[in-house]
Simulated scan of single mutants.
Amino acid sequence: MSAPLYNKDILRLAASIPHHHRLPAPQASVERRSPTCGSRVTVDVAMADGRLSDIGLDVKACALGQASASLMAAQAIGMSADELAEARDKLTAYLSGASDDLDFWPGLAVLAPARGYPARHASIRLGFEAIAEAARMADA
């Protein structure tokens, strides 16, 4: 691991989370919390025609969890619940070492240094887990 865990790109993402507000009337809301570090991400969603049309976030997480939520929120609108679930699963596979594929979501390479720190994986997955579940609930 040659790259530092908390680098300027991670910190920049953590400081600029898109959609960092709660929605006034979401179709579904899901909160995910990491039991390891206490990081928490709440996602509100609205769906239209089977696609995510709006998202609201409340992120109280470490810099890695914030950066991951930032990357997720920047690309999620327009995706289906199935696509969001697939991204969640691919992120989990990447972090666990079961896959080396990062092409499924723009920008995730910035989180590569965290792959060797399993205690941080739960925080990194929070936003992806919450949005996948919220989209599934709203789409049902």
Rank of each mutant, 00 (worst) to 15 (best):
P24F: 01
S29T: 14
S68K: 05
Q66V: 00
D54H: 12
A15H: 10
G97V: 05
N7R: 05
N7F: 03
L91N: 04
P18Y: 06
A15C: 11
A25P: 00
D9Q: 13
A67I: 00
A69W: 03
R51Y: 04
L111R: 00
H121I: 01
P26F: 04
D44K: 12
S53Y: 07
P113L: 12
L71G: 00
L111K: 01
R12V: 08
D100C: 11
L102M: 11
A76G: 06
V45L: 08
G107A: 09
L11Q: 15
L52F: 08
P24K: 07
P26G: 07
A73R: 06
A3Y: 10
A109R: 12
D54V: 05
G116K: 13
M1L: 11
P118G: 13
L57Y: 08
A132I: 10
I124K: 06
L11W: 10
S16W: 14
Y117H: 15
A134N: 09
A98D: 15
P113D: 10
A114V: 02
D82Y: 10
L71P: 00
D103K: 08
M1F: 05
S16M: 10
C62D: 03
A15R: 15
L71C: 10
H19L: 12
P26E: 01
A112I: 06
G65Y: 03
I131Q: 02
D100R: 14
L5H: 08
G56R: 09
E31L: 14
R115F: 04
A25Y: 07
S16G: 15
Q27C: 10
G78M: 11
V110D: 01
A140E: 15
Y94N: 07
A81L: 00
A3P: 04
D101T: 09
D100Y: 08
L52Q: 02
A109D: 15
V110R: 08
I17C: 11
G50W: 06
I17L: 13
R32V: 07
G50Q: 04
S123Y: 05
P24C: 03
Q75W: 06
G127T: 05
P118I: 14
A98Y: 10
C62L: 05
L91C: 05
P35N: 12
A87L: 06
A48V: 08
R115K: 15
S99W: 03
L95H: 00
H121G: 02
A109W: 09
C37E: 02
D82M: 12
D44W: 11
R40P: 01
L23Y: 03
P35Y: 07
S29A: 13
E31F: 01
E129Q: 14
L5P: 00
L52D: 04
L5N: 09
G56W: 04
M72S: 02
A14V: 06
R51E: 10
D103E: 13
M72E: 04
L91P: 00
A25V: 14
L57S: 06
F104T: 02
S34W: 02
E133M: 08
S2C: 12
R125S: 02
G50C: 07
S39C: 12
D101V: 12
R125P: 00
I17G: 04
A112D: 06
T92C: 11
A112C: 05
